[in-house]
Amino acid sequence: MTAIPVQPIVSMRRVEKIYRQGDSVVHAVDQVDIDIFPGEFTVLSGPSGSGKTTILNLTGALDNVTRGDIHVEGRKLQDMSRTETSRFRRDRVGFVFQAYNLIPVLTAFENAELILSIQGVPRTERSARVRDLFHAVGLDGLEHRRPSAMSGGQQQRVAIVRAIVTNPAIVLADEPTANVDSRTAATILDIMERLNREMGNTFLFSSHDPQVIARAHRVISMQDGRVVGDERRDGNS
């Protein structure tokens, strides 16, 4: 019996990102080939300026490649129109930012249900989905709080709910534990791991936090915009 080959969710080929700042040229990402497969819990690790965040931005169609191709779920990002890109981000990608980035005028619950509302999900359904996830991440009772009245850890948990509530193909998390203490970081990682394990969400992190790296199933090491290592913790490095 032949195993059916698993298609990658994200496929990057010879990806380059060059920034020009005055006369100087910065190769933020240089000739990168990466495949991310469904259900993976992957960390992009490396020092500051190694290109981790740029990889996340390119994968989430927040930025355009200078050269090379990126396919997500088989669709080439460079071929998408502005509207298609918006829809792709809305429906297929979840973002978790280092600084939480919740909308201050919305309550925790409203922040989490914002995209569902834009997607046109009926109120009862989106309430149920957000409530379930709030319960799953331990935010019961905080639904009506504004971000300013929540701790960093609580805000990051709301951000995680916001990222996964639409059931995206991949969750991109940029240094999600950088702004919280180690205990809160552990809690956040517990939640993400559990969501990955129980719900099958694919996570791609950028981090140089050893705690995050220790939990990852796969660690892609980067330096100066290049991939310098790709280690799979299940023994398939």
């Binding site: 989430g60 981000r89 809305r90 990608v93 973002f95 201050p104 834009i118």
Partner: peptide, 16 residues
């Protein structure tokens, strides 16, 4: 401006 960047990132369209 930053907040608008976030809204665009999470999938709000420029038209919205």
């Amino acid at each position: 401006k930053r907040e608008f960047g976030i809204l665009l990132a999470v999938g709000i369209s420029p038209l919205r």
